[in-house]
């Protein structure tokens, strides 16, 4: 009897754990309201972009966007973030593993491609990054992402 109880408790805990994991992930799924892979007409959402950032970007680029010296580049006031949107979107779609220099410093870790993110998610997270950490630049739209994704096909 006791054993059964223990097993039940275990299953319950597992289920609870699963539920927690589910709720943790839910916001990201919600963030992509557009059709799978497609661009929606919705305006980019900085708030939804922050959720994407927290899930996929923060562990390397850090909560303050400052990156990690010698390893992961900062996202604060660099031309990579504030400049040409095409280059920026392509870094997300294709990744980046080149020697890049920002303010005299270099960074060793490769950035993996994030092409598994939907157009909306990429537009939202780039809009968040371009308007956070002291950055002030125009939003990125899902249509701009879609155009480059299609061009790369």
């Amino acid at each position: 009897m006791k054993k059964v109880f223990a097993i039940n408790l275990f299953i319950l805990l597992l289920a609870a754990g699963g539920a927690v994991a589910q709720t943790k992930k839910a916001p990201v799924k919600k963030a992509s309201t557009g059709a799978a892979g497609g661009a929606s007409a919705a305006k980019p959402s900085v708030a939804k972009g922050k959720v994407v950032y927290t899930t996929y970007c923060l562990s390397c680029h850090q909560a303050d966007g400052g990156g990690v010296p010698n390893m992961n580049p900062p996202l604060i006031k660099t031309s990579y973030v504030l400049g040409d949107k095409t280059r920026l979107i392509n870094i997300l779609l294709k990744g980046l593993n080149d020697e890049i220099e920002i303010n005299g410093a270099t960074y060793s870790n490769p950035m993996p491609a994030h092409d598994f993110l939907k157009d909306d998610d990429i537009a939202n997270v780039l809009s968040f990054v371009r308007s956070s950490f002291g950055n002030k630049a125009s939003p990125v739209t899902a249509a701009e992402v879609k155009k480059l994704r299609d061009a790369a096909k």
């Binding site: 870790n109 950035m111 993996p112 598994f116």
Partner: peptide, 8 residues
């Protein structure tokens, strides 16, 4: 296969 890429 793909360095630091989710699920690879």
């Amino acid at each position: 296969i793909k360095d630091r890429t989710p699920g690879s």
